[in-house]
């Protein structure tokens, strides 16, 4: 007899597609926040599936910090072409040039905090009322309580105490003028689920995710890629290491891991035995135990 049940990946996929379709049905001007990382790549893939044979009915938004890995940008442009979808780029450099934000200085300078302003400005400029992102609840403590439909006030802020209860699969996207939503269709996926899904669907990823040789500097236990954006401190030296990335953020703050995993099988085996969270490789989260939560309240996620 046929067994009528789904595997966990099938169920997670069905849930994500349901949420993406719900966003298009409930909002006027949705968009997908595309970071270039594997989670947003999976989101783009799920979006294609959700509307096939139609094209994805919303633009991809990329907030370009100017500190991106070149591989990320190349991959982004290729994907946009393949999907035939509109790309909107919000430039942090432009926010700096316009005097909206001030660049951080010093060896640990990062444009991560500045992104928030550019992102909110971009959402406003294009009147985006629902911005989908690839964030997952397993990533970090502050995310464990995030909703699928996360309500933001007119300043783009998140009030953790004032979130709507989410029941069954009945998502409430009602809002007042000027407010918007962040939506996280893969909330319930873990890092392992994402990797297994990428493998099962044969989804292409930027080369950064696979083991390669790279000149790096090790700072406070974080392996940073050598680039124009990372200034060496006096006692630091460049080392050539065999590394790969678990997330794809900005060059100056995204840490690599030493790894020989050069294909998906090896990466999945590695993920299964890894003992630190993905965010453990991000220098910006080390600024304080609640760093993520603070950025979230101000509208970054």
């Amino acid at each position: 007899m046929t067994q009528y049940y789904l595997s966990h990946l099938e169920e997670l996929e069905a849930e994500a597609i349901f949420v993406i379709r719900e966003v298009v049905s409930q909002f006027e001007k949705p968009a997908l926040l595309f970071s270039g990382g594997k989670d947003s790549i999976v989101l783009a893939h799920l979006s294609r599936k959700a509307f096939y044979p139609s094209r994805i009915p919303f633009p991809l938004i990329h907030i370009d910090t100017g500190h991106n890995f070149p591989e990320t940008i190349a991959f982004r442009d290729e994907l946009v072409k393949e999907l035939g979808v509109q790309l909107i780029v919000g430039s942090v450099q432009k926010s700096i040039d316009d005097g909206k934000v001030r660049e951080e200085t010093g060896a640990n300078a990062s444009r991560n905090a500045l992104q928030t302003v550019t992102l909110l400005d971009t959402l406003e400029e294009y009147k985006i009322d629902a911005a989908m992102g690839g964030a997952r609840r397993d990533e970090e403590k502050a995310r464990a309580k995030e909703r699928f439909f996360s309500h933001r006030d007119e300043f783009g802020q998140w009030d953790p105490k004032n979130q709507r209860p989410e029941l069954w699969n009945l998502f409430n996207g009602k809002k007042h003028m000027g407010e918007h939503f962040r939506v996280f269709p893969i909330s319930n996926w873990t890092e392992m689920d994402v990797w297994q899904y990428i493998q099962s669907q044969d989804i292409a990823l930027p080369s950064l995710y696979f083991s390669h040789q790279r000149d790096c500097v090790v700072r406070d236990g974080v392996i940073l890629a050598k680039s124009d954006f990372v200034q060496l401190k006096p006692n630091e030296e460049i080392k050539n290491l065999t590394v790969r990335y678990r997330t794809c953020g900005d060059m100056p703050i995204t840490g690599a891991v030493e790894s020989e995993a050069d294909d998906l099988d090896k990466i999945i085996a590695e993920v299964a035995t890894t003992r630190t969270t993905e965010r453990g490789t991000r220098a910006d989260d080390k600024r304080g135990e609640t760093a993520m939560e603070d950025r979230k309240k101000s509208g970054y996620f």
Binding site: R137, K141, A142, A144, K145, P160, N188, E293
Partner: peptide, 17 residues
Amino acid sequence: LKSEREQGITIDVAYRY
């Protein structure tokens, strides 16, 4: 979350995996 930690209570539903 931080605000809840400060109050010493948990006020919501959190999801774990």
